[in-house]
Design a protein around this nucleic acid. Structure first.
Lengths: 147, 147
DNA sequence: TTAAGTGCAAAATCTTTGCAAATGT
DNA sequence: ACATTTGCAAAGATTTTGCACTTAA
């Protein structure tokens, strides 16, 4: 995570998904890739306040549909988005990793490396996707020895 | 789940949490206990349309604060509430069970019996609570052989 | 050139707040 | 009687929709 990817990578990403390479979209992608936490619409809006709010909503939903980003709800029910790691197809996400929501700084971390353990469900349930969600203190906040 | 509890049980529950026994609150409790799926504010509103919407919001948040119900967000980010099984204290929930969201009928099931497997987090993360979330087809919908 | 994307205004939702009237203890 | 709770009205916040202008291909 958090590695700064080059712009041509994002341009390529947009092209592959038949989306036009526009300035707002590239800025959203670059902003999201520069973080190691998920980003909400309000986040985006405060950082890129020259881009229209509606445009941000539309960019996020287009990216999600195309499988470029995925959505996680934080403890407050706010949607947070993070770049998909691998091969999420149109309409089919494969983000079965652990999401960690810090109760102090409110950030949502995607811990892609964590494998989900196998889960057995009661008879009749046919699961298609799993998400494991944890809340607590992230490394930064636990270091600060929160009162 | 889904067992119909007697009214005095709910009255007792309210008393224990220092909440007055009012008709709207008892109806919400009885409605929630009669279901085996979690209930959203819109759900409540459509079933009990003689109770003010604001009252329902306030009942839900009071119950959640007191640890009588807990909140799960479904695939659409809508808050769904379910009765807490055991000993959820004021401000401290212990609902570390599996939530199953059916992609067909949209219902959210609390599978209280499922134990969460132990999870190891990367260094620095200090988890306080886990939620495992699955989506797919519930028994009813998988039986119907959805197209 | 033209289909897709953006920005602005406005509508539709969803959720919260303030306060007077009603209700439980 | 008194503190809570409710219902209504209204404010605030969030998200969606429509449409003219702009831009990438």
């Amino acid at each position: 995570m958090a590695q700064t990817l080059h712009n041509f990578h994002f341009e390529d990403l947009l092209t592959r998904h038949h989306l036009k390479k526009t300035a707002p979209r590239l800025r959203v992608l670059s902003m999201m890739s520069s973080r190691n936490t998920a980003t909400s619409q309000p986040d985006l809006e405060s950082v890129m306040n020259d881009i229209d709010r509606v445009t941000l909503y539309r960019i996020l939903s287009a990216f999600e549909e195309k499988g470029i980003i995925h959505k996680v709800f934080d403890l407050n029910g706010t949607a947070n988005y993070a770049l998909c790691t691998s091969n999420c197809d149109e309409g089919h996400h494969h983000d079965e990793h652990l999401h960690f929501n810090c109760t102090n700084c409110k950030n949502v971390y995607c811990l892609n490396d964590m494998q989900l353990p196998a889960i057995n469900l009661p008879a009749g349930f046919e699961p298609q996707a799993f998400t494991l969600y944890a809340s607590g203190l992230c490394p930064k906040c636990s270091k600060k020895a929160v009162k």
